[in-house]
Write a protein that binds this DNA or RNA. Structure first.
Length: 564
DNA sequence: GCCGTTTTCGGCCCGACTGTTTTCAGTCG
């Protein structure tokens, strides 16, 4: 996927333009870079499908940047970027990566001390040449020195699931402090984005200064970047930046709204506010300097004429334009039907998984280990599977029905990895592709449809096989599969594994149009993974799924009818 | 360079923090 490469070039161009004192363009390039970087779709695919026009449609990308993107996709180079690089000494833009050094300071360092790369910066630091520069001082030298240690670890977005435990821990940590009155995570985490670039926390406290002090002492903090009375910024050990803002109790709603975003949603909402004669910022909603809302998000949205908009869907697509139906909710889920145990490649026993599911108030749990071909994941031979069916039957947990199943491999020819005779014995049969990812589009669809035609198969797992940041989704005639599933009562999985999130919300939307029904599963490989369910539900919310679109919201009896 | 029911020109978020100043510029998100 070339999105990141292209975004990086535009970021660099912005840096260079800024050093060259060019106005406005840097912002434009950065906005485009951010947009391209955070897109879910492959920019190459967009170009193949819709050409230059498709690129131009990306928010923040106009004619000029679209053309440059096209140039890069075609030639692997952007002429103007090459020209820009020639205008400043080689290496100067890498100085911009040093935290605390912006265009003005980089320029000063070059003009006064002829420093044009990291190496020369280090030499100058050793000789303490920088502290005597106008605008710099002793402290500047110390900070640059510290930042240099971190420069190699480039900012990388982490998976939602990777960030989840630390956010939970941090929130708990802050809640325990007696001066804390409220804590809530905002930003991309609250919106449940696929990947997280930094963590935003919002708090109400009796003593802001003390809360910030506690915050910077959180054990996972690697480095403190800023600390004041209302705001603290730290770098965590996982190299994610984490911001804490402390606000007054009656500002909590407006601040939460403001820091949750996303940016385009907020800009749109602010525009609507202005149109209606209001002003909206993180301190509240104002009419003629009079504050008319801000204690809660709900009251802000209400005053502006909207129902409450869940954070997950604040993505500036339709949420400010259309009436939002009652969406699927985390509490609607009655069971998880794609779970592994240590009998194949999981960590826990059947009983351990069952008890964990019980804790989540589920009514049913499907144990679905890998089939025999998946040797690498210790897939079960037929005789072992039969033993496990018995064991599952004999595992009793009050209020929880255990279902025996399998995640059966779809072989390259579209046949399944187990015979119909054994599949018939199972409650849940999930078909999945784990090999032959490079099969061409036509063959892939035939292969999948052949597998789904088997009457025992009811669920199609992680349809695109993508691994976020690792493996591209495979080439799929998805709409053909949707049509088949809708017609034949097959269910498409929304796999909630943080590295999969497959389907993603855009494809859920497509499937919804074809009246496909879904099942949200975690594909858990240990008991803690069952909590990933919320990530899958969030994807469904983003596509505006309702409860009736998701079959594992059904009571056990009705759910089982769907599996027959 | 982007963008548009205040449009095709003239805007472009702005407040917190830091380290340097002696009231503020630069950086960041």
């Amino acid at each position: 996927m070339k999105n990141q490469e292209i975004a990086d070039i535009f970021y660099n161009m912005a840096d260079i333009l800024e050093i060259l004192n060019v106005n406005w363009k840097p912002q434009a390039y950065r906005k485009a870079a951010r947009s391209i970087e955070s897109m879910n779709e492959n920019i190459e695919t967009i170009y193949e499908k819709k050409g230059l026009k498709g690129i131009d449609e990306i928010p923040g990308v106009g004619k000029s940047i679209a053309k440059k993107t096209e140039e890069y996709l075609k030639t692997g180079k952007i002429k103007e970027y090459e020209n820009l690089k020639k205008k400043i000494p080689k290496g100067l833009d890498e100085l911009m990566d040093v935290m605390g050094l912006g265009p003005k300071k980089v320029k000063k360092l070059f003009e006064e001390l002829k420093i044009k790369n990291i190496k020369e910066l280090k030499t100058a630091l050793k000789k303490h040449k920088i502290e005597s520069l106008e605008g710099f001082g002793k402290k500047s030298e110390e900070n640059i020195e510290k930042s240099l240690e971190l420069i190699k670890q480039r900012k990388k977005r982490l998976l939602l699931g990777e960030v989840y435990p630390i956010v939970k821990e941090l929130i708990e940590y802050l809640k325990e402090k007696k001066e804390t009155k409220k804590v809530e995570v905002a930003g991309s985490f609250r919106r449940m984005e696929e990947t997280i670039g930094d963590i935003d926390i919002l708090a109400v406290s009796n003593n802001g200064k003390k809360t910030i002090q506690d915050f910077i002492k959180f054990p996972e903090v690697k480095r403190v970047l800023a600390k004041g009375n209302t705001k603290g910024v730290v770098l965590l050990k996982n190299n994610l930046q984490c911001d804490l803002r402390v606000v007054k109790e009656n500002q909590f709603g407006s601040a939460l709204q403001y820091f949750t975003g996303n940016k385009p949603h907020n800009i749109e909402l602010r525009k609507i506010a202005i149109k209606k004669g209001y002003k909206l910022n993180e301190y509240g909603l104002f009419k003629n300097k009079k504050r008319v809302a801000g204690n809660t998000e709900k009251e802000i949205y209400k005053k502006l004429g909207f129902q409450y908009i869940p954070p997950e869907i604040r993505i500036n697509e339709d949420e400010l334009k259309k009436k939002i139906p009652r969406l699927i909710d985390y509490n609607d889920i009655k069971g998880d039907l794609h779970v592994h145990t240590r009998d194949s490649d999981g960590l826990n026993t059947i009983m351990e998984m069952a008890l964990a599911a019980k804790k989540l108030n589920y009514n049913y749990l499907g144990i679905t280990n890998h089939s025999k071909t998946r040797k690498i994941s210790s897939g079960l031979e037929e005789k072992d599977l039969i033993k496990k069916i018995k064991e599952i039957k004999n595992t009793k947990v009050k209020g929880l029905k255990l279902l025996s199943g399998s995640e059966v491999d779809i072989l390259k020819n579209g046949e399944l990895d187990y015979s119909d005779k054994i599949l018939k014995k199972l409650d849940i049969v999930i078909a999945a592709i784990h090999s032959g990812f490079k099969t061409d589009k036509k063959k892939m669809v035939d292969r999948i449809l052949k597998a789904l035609e088997n009457e025992n198969v009811k669920i199609f797992a992680h349809p695109f096989g993508r691994l976020i940041n690792k493996r591209e989704p495979y080439n799929l005639d998805f709409e053909k599969i949707c049509k088949f599933c809708a017609k034949n009562e097959k269910y498409i999985e929304i796999n909630a594994q943080p590295e999969r999130l497959d389907l993603d919300y855009k494809n859920i939307k497509i499937a919804l149009k074809h009246n496909v029904k879904f099942i949200i599963n975690t594909d858990a490989h240990k008991k803690e993974n069952l909590e990933f369910m919320r990530f899958g539900v969030a994807q469904a919310m983003k596509a505006w799924c309702r409860k009736k679109d998701i079959i594992n919201t059904l009571p056990l009896k009705e759910f089982m009818k769907k599996m027959k």
